[in-house]
């Protein structure tokens, strides 16, 4: 067995160090080594988006990133969206607007939607659909997800003014 690599990263604001094999994906390390199981494996080849995390602020399919590539990076997972006492407005709006059914795609959608709203605080329906097209949901038909993102965007804009 190959020697493990010693890596460091900032995960959800906290500096962490961990060991991993060269062949392990970032998703595998997040889930199996760091025990952050919020990011899900739906396909393990970049087609479903359930494993979406932010890598230095940009959304990536963590199943397509080798963990060794994340050395020194800032990583945000769904576990890092809420603060100690409050859900992120996206999380709150997903709940209020019934934008999840089984919930397994939800972490990926929340992280991808955060990336969208970070760069575009007032996206159109079409922009939301385009930006979230990398994330598959089989339960909702997307209607309520799109509305929840619009709702959260409005709430975030209000909070800024």
């Amino acid at each position: 067995m190959a020697k493990k690599h010693h890596l460091s990263a900032v995960v959800n604001g906290e500096p962490v160090e961990f060991l991993c094999e060269a062949r392990q994906s970032l998703l595998e390390v997040l889930r199996d080594v760091l025990h952050l199981t919020g990011a899900k494996e739906g396909c393990n080849n970049g087609n479903c988006g359930a494993c979406t995390v932010l890598l230095d602020g940009l959304p990536v399919n963590s199943c397509l990133v080798l963990a060794v590539e994340a050395d020194g990076c800032r990583i945000t997972t769904v576990e890092g969206l809420a603060d100690a006492t409050h859900l992120h407005p996206l999380q709150q709006c997903f709940l209020e607007d019934a934008a999840l059914q089984c919930g397994v795609c939800t972490p990926g959608f929340l992280v991808a939607a955060k990336a969208l709203l970070d760069k575009n605080p007032n996206p159109s329906e079409q922009e939301i659909r385009f930006e979230l097209a990398n994330n598959l949901c089989r339960c909702t038909g997307y209607d309520k997800i799109v509305r929840a993102v619009q709702h959260a965007a409005a709430r975030l804009r209000e909070a800024r003014t």
Binding site: H35, T77, E79, L81, L87, Q91, T106
Partner: peptide
């Protein structure tokens, strides 16, 4: 009426345990 689902917070925070999450 349209109350917030009881298991909702666990599912939007990544805390809900699906079968593959079990260790």
């Amino acid at each position: 009426t349209r109350p917030i689902r009881h298991d909702g917070t666990d599912k939007v925070t990544g805390r809900a345990i699906y079968a593959a999450d079990l260790h």
